[in-house]
Write a protein that binds this DNA or RNA. Structure first.
Length: 421
RNA sequence: GGAGGGGUGGCAGAGUGGCCGAAUGCGCCGGUCUUGAAAACCGGAGUGCCGCAAGGUACCGUGGGUUCGAAUCCCACCCCCUCCGCCA
């Protein structure tokens, strides 16, 4: 959530920043509630202080004395007033908090203003797309043996659409990708964690999935738990309600997890094959950093993700996401899109973002500056990488005339072979 | 799942209705002493909210309730431990 103190001081600045995003939010109502809240708190605390003082005087009177009895009558009235003022203060505080949770993060000044994804800026490319043009290139889902190795019909039978089985050497290739990504992350200084795949409401609220995006997550209504849409949720929440030492920062971690997304209402032709699934595997990088370093760290994070595509020899482009396409909790976001030569499309395989203090404030993750008061940290995360679309690109870009697919060199030792198909 | 026990400050651990934001010990920070260190002694130290400040207020697992007054009594929930059952 945003810093209410900054909002009080610079309403128009925040309003301007948020206007660039596509989310609806009512700053005037928030500010009005903030004012009401402060008044209500002051009133309740004043009355409460009077009650406490009177109570202390009363404790010294002999119980059952006339004086005590008279005082008691007075105190009952005061107690009623305190109760009333406190419940009023509590109520307005809850309203204030719930509105505050609907205010998105303010985009960084370097984020281009735009309406939607067509306004995203391509800031870099790597690799030669034209070199991959060949007549026999096909979409991965049109490779003749595709369904033998990535079995969608069986997935439909067992679960539903978007939950394929990976079979045989394809399962092994997926495992090789996971292993490769984790090895690279570890070499880059990210400590590996194996995280819960199910989280509670507080965790989902802290990272910004709730209260607004229930449609994205599978949930267990009985237990009030959610299947994670990304490792970002459990991993970021690792330090929820904790205070880190300044010298510990930055903390860098990586996690492999399956990810579960309902993708309600977004099923269509663009999403055949591996392009969009309800369950997919991903390695995620997460950083907790000093506020002054977060934009610098974002560049490093992006480079770490990019290096994976380079090592896999997959051409990609880097997009700086515009204000209209950027997510609710994000201050700045880069997407990496890999070239899929069969579909002749760019596929998003990574999103690297700086959330500044937005998630950390919701999650109450702080650090203690040298001898000072705790301050909110900044959090970042980036996919490194989402596996099905990387796999799609490998299948399409590396398809040979003989119908087999060449496995990228760096994966061969982990995969245990040179070809698949 | 059944039966019992328990959740108090960084940790350990007192506290069963007002004198408790909370004893004591350990650990931590600063100082005295010392050539230096240890020991000893002295002092300090939680987090949030309201307030320009002085200060006020909240927080003893969480949320309700009883009471003039709750860490302390009542209810619900969460979590941990022990035993039994079941299971990888």
């Amino acid at each position: 959530m945003i810093d209410i103190k900054i909002l009080r001081e610079d309403l128009e600045g925040i309003r301007e920043g948020l206007a660039k995003k596509k989310f609806e939010c009512d700053l005037d109502r928030l500010l009005e509630l903030d004012k009401q809240r402060r008044e209500a708190v002051a009133l309740a605390e004043e009355k409460r202080a009077a009650q406490k003082a009177a109570n202390q005087a009363m404790a010294k009177l002999p119980k059952g004395s006339d004086e005590f009895q008279a005082k008691l009558k007075e105190m009952k009235v005061l107690a009623g007033e305190v109760k009333e003022l406190e419940s009023a203060s509590k109520e307005v505080n809850e309203q204030w908090k719930s509105v505050l949770l609907t205010i998105p993060n303010v985009p960084h000044e370097s984020v281009p203003v735009g309406k939607n994804e067509t306004d995203n800026q391509q800031i870099d490319t790597w690799g030669d797309v034209d070199a991959l043009v060949s007549e026999h290139a096909v979409a991965h889902y049109d490779i003749p043996w595709f369904e033998q190795k990535i079995d969608f019909p069986r997935g439909v039978k067992v679960t539903g659409a978007g939950f394929p089985f990976y079979v045989g050497d394809m399962a092994r290739l997926v495992r090789a990708l996971i292993q490769f990504f984790l090895n690279e992350a570890a070499a880059g200084g990210y400590e590996e964690v194996l995280a819960p795949l199910v989280v509670n409401e507080a965790s989902a609220t802290a990272t910004g999935q709730l209260p607004d995006k229930e449609g994205q997550m599978y949930s267990d209504q009985n237990e009030n738990l959610y299947l994670i849409p990304t490792a970002e949720v459990p991993v970021t929440n690792f330090f929820r309600d904790e205070i880190l030492e300044e010298k510990e920062l930055p903390v860098n971690r990586c996690a492999y997890t399956p990810c579960f997304r309902r993708e309600a209402g977004s099923w269509g032709k663009e999403v055949r094959g591996l392009n969009r699934l309800h369950q997919f595997d991903k390695v995620e990088l997460v950083k907790w950093v000093h506020p002054e370093k977060s934009y610098e760290e974002l560049e490093g994070l992006r480079k770490d993700a990019e290096s994976l595509l380079q090592k896999l020899e997959l051409p990609y482009r880097v997009l700086l996401i515009c204000s209209g396409d950027i997510g609710f909790p994000h201050a700045k976001q880069y997407d990496l899109e890999v070239w899929a030569g069969g579909q002749k499309r760019w596929l998003e395989v990574s999103s690297c973002s700086n959330f500044t203090d937005f998630q950390a404030r919701r999650a109450n993750i702080r650090f203690r500056p040298q001898g000072g008061k705790p301050e909110v940290v900044h959090t970042l995360n980036g996919s490194a990488l989402a596996i099905p679309r990387v796999l799609a690109a490998i299948l399409e870009n590396n398809l040979q005339e003989d119908g087999r697919v060449r496995v990228p060199k760096v994966l061969q030792p982990l995969y245990g072979g040179e070809f698949i198909g």
